[in-house]
Amino acid sequence: MKKIFGLILSAAVLGTVLTACGGSGAGVSSSGAAGASEPASVSGSAVNSSVYGTTLADIQAKGELVIGLDDTFAPMGFRDESGNLVGFDIDLATAVCEELGVKATFQPIDWDAKEMELSSGNIDCIWNGMSITPEREEAMSLSQAYLNNKIVIMTKEGVTVSAKEDLANYNIGIQAGSAALEAVTNDAVYASIQDKITEYPTYDEVILDVQAGRLDCMIIDEVYGGYKNAKLGSIFAVSEVDFGDDLYAIGFRKGDAELTQAVNDAINALIESGKAAEISEAWFGADIVVKG
């Protein structure tokens, strides 16, 4: 899904951000490896927003890894019918935290403000189907790729996109701050379609407007779009043309290389044990985890 990084805050702005973030709601935590049918529990503790240069020892000392996520991004991390936080990333992160000997605490954030949440120390990492981009590699310490995705074009009935240039004839929806938006803006076709694009805070809103006919198509993560389309009875068509592969990684602060490697090691241990494949099968019907 997703998503564009990059601002380094000044000390004055950072102080304001910390004040604002201090009033955010409690996170969601899980101390066990929740399966696809076992949602994470709600934590009543506030998130520590003063963690910098975090190491694995720091995380183990406080007993939790605070994970920032967009809780509308199915099937990676989202709310079920009962309001419980579930998803592939929820289950994988919970299993990783078990490997690290800490609790997974999930903190819903405004995805468009994810860089600010991380820089301020409100969260320890961003883990929610976040795409690897050159900008993020420069701005953050990224984990190894753990899942592959693709940026696809999905259309309502009666709309056909046989080539990217056809998009100029249609109204297009896309999530603000997403990797899909970045892929489109970096493509040669962007100059001819930019006036046709409307950005939305979430992909759920994009999907609703395509359903309602206010949009003709959307450019979206295949993992998310395919999951939602199946739930809706496959009402959208998927174009044969796309905007390329999209590898997912976990984002940490630039100075957190040691913590990043510890999470990589935990993911690889889950791959070796077969646990990662088990989680993937539960959510996607196949093992699509990328081997480190």
Rank of each mutant, 00 (worst) to 15 (best):
I288H: 14
P134A: 11
D209K: 03
A46L: 12
T55S: 11
T160C: 00
A74W: 08
N268L: 11
I250F: 11
I153L: 02
L142R: 06
M130F: 13
L208A: 05
V161S: 00
E117S: 06
V42R: 13
T185K: 10
V152D: 08
E135V: 15
F252M: 08
A183T: 05
S131V: 13
G158L: 03
A95I: 15
E281F: 04
L147G: 07
G27S: 05
A237K: 14
G274P: 15
L147I: 12
R214F: 10
Q60G: 10
A276M: 14
D58A: 06
K3L: 02
L142Y: 11
A12E: 14
I207L: 03
L167D: 13
A249R: 02
D265N: 13
N128Q: 06
I267R: 12
A180Y: 04
F88D: 11
E38F: 10
D71H: 11
Q175N: 04
A139K: 05
L65Y: 06
I172P: 04
G121R: 09
G213A: 07
L215S: 03
Y203V: 03
E205A: 11
P75V: 01
D112E: 03
Q211T: 01
G32T: 15
E64L: 12
A26Y: 06
N128P: 02
T155Q: 03
G101D: 00
N149M: 06
N148A: 12
T94E: 11
L9Y: 13
K164D: 03
Q194W: 10
A230I: 01
